[in-house]
Amino acid sequence: MSWRYLVRRILLLLLVMWTAATINFFIPKLSPRDPIKERLQLAATQGGRNQTGLQAMADAYAHQYGLDQPLWKQYLHALLKVVQFDYGYSISQYPRTVNSVIGDALPWTICLGLVSILIAFVVGTVLGAALGWPRSPGWLRALVPVSMLTSAVPAFVLGFLLIYLFAFRLKVFPLAGAYSQTADPGWSLSFVGDVIDHAFLPALALVLFQLGGQALQMRGLMVMTVGEDYITFADAKGLRPRRVFLRYAVRNALLPQVTGLVMSLGTFIFSTVLVETLFAYPGLGGLINSAIQVLDYNLLYGITMILVFAVCIATLAVDLIYPLLDPRIRYDRR
């Protein structure tokens, strides 16, 4: 692999991160609301205290969060914090830092999203390859309309349907949450089973949402691949159908399939956030929802930058493993 190409890709990643950080910084500033004053007024109202000294407290907190500085200083400070992976204190959960708040929710999102997208990709790719192979059983064609339906329905709508059917009507799975309120968190088999039981419906909603699109895309790639000359030549040589299917058809259709997976990562992450909010799952979805309601600038900034960074790293990683999937791809000038 060419080092010049690797440097260009890393510079492009940094450019994307800078653009996302800039947009993420300025959009919340367009709101006329003052999150510091809102939090202090809420605390004063709930505590039955008067408003004496409220402005002074608001000014003190604004100075602590750097909100009293000129906009360009806030912007440079925010960029420096992005480089340091330090997003300061959470306005809504002070005195906790943004990193600690995200650190509690991130493992739930990673487990739910990563497992769901891997299952959807593997099953969707195998199913799509079988649908596009002319020698597959005819009954598989009945799955094409089902795949089109699930790919067209948003993940949170599928989540509503699953909640109504399996949690409300049949009462097979829990309605919401990550584990039972009476459960004792730990690595015991009972707690792990309880977590899996609560994660089944949100994971199923994400898998069904991604599965149909993956299957239809792989089916289209297989249809185009089957018509290539090397497939006809492999059949003429008398190779076994299984080898033609795996080594010639699936292997050549897999590269665009991986590219499509990377292209859909942004949509999948957004769907994961919505599904987590719907199921009251303790991941980044609930944090984003609460941060938007109270306009927690620092928490919103940290979550968004982590999501953008994850998509950029995934894109770079897949781009670098392309030569392993297809030896014809070279990033050097030879």
Rank of each mutant, 00 (worst) to 15 (best):
R4Y: 12
L6Y: 09
R8A: 13
L12T: 12
L13Y: 10
M17Q: 02
T19I: 14
T19F: 04
A20I: 08
A20P: 01
P28T: 07
P32T: 05
R33V: 05
P35F: 01
I36M: 08
K37P: 02
E38I: 09
E38K: 13
L40V: 14
L42E: 03
A44K: 01
Q46R: 15
Q46K: 14
G48H: 07
Q55H: 11
A56N: 15
M57T: 11
D59M: 10
Y61M: 11
Y61W: 08
A62N: 10
L67F: 00
P70I: 03
W72M: 15
W72F: 13
Y75G: 00
L80V: 14
D86N: 11
Y87M: 07
Y89K: 13
Y89G: 11
S90T: 04
S90V: 05
S90W: 03
Y94P: 08
P95E: 09
N99M: 14
G103T: 05
L106S: 07
W108E: 03
W108D: 00
T109N: 03
C111I: 13
L112M: 01
V115M: 08
S116P: 07
L118I: 11
I119H: 04
A120G: 09
V126G: 06
V126M: 11
A129R: 05
G138Y: 01
W139M: 08
R141C: 09
A142R: 14
V146C: 11
M148Q: 14
L149S: 09
L161C: 07
L162Q: 06
A167G: 11
A167R: 12
R169W: 15
V172Y: 13
A176N: 12
G177A: 06
Y179W: 05
S180W: 02
G186K: 00
G186V: 00
W187G: 00
S190I: 06
F191I: 04
F191Q: 02
G193A: 01
D194Q: 01
D197A: 13
D197L: 15
H198Y: 02
F200Q: 04
F200P: 02
P202A: 07
A203H: 05
L204Y: 02
V207G: 04
V207W: 00
F209W: 15
Q210P: 04
L211K: 04
Q214T: 13
Q214D: 14
A215K: 01
Q217N: 13
G220A: 10
G220F: 00
V223I: 15
M224L: 14
M224W: 09
T225N: 11
D229Y: 13
F233P: 07
F233D: 10
F233R: 14
D235N: 11
G238E: 12
L239M: 10
R243W: 12
L246D: 10
A249I: 01
Q257V: 07
V258Q: 02
T259I: 10
L261Y: 12
S264Q: 15
G266W: 06
G266F: 10
F268N: 06
F270Q: 13
S271Q: 03
L274S: 12
E276Y: 05
T277D: 11
T277W: 07
L278T: 03
A280P: 00
Y281R: 03
G286R: 00
L287A: 04
I288V: 14
I288C: 11
S290W: 06
I292W: 13
Y297E: 08
N298R: 03
G302R: 03
M305R: 01
I306T: 12
L316T: 04
L320N: 05
L320I: 09
P323Y: 14
I329E: 04
R330P: 06
D332H: 04
R334C: 08
R334D: 11
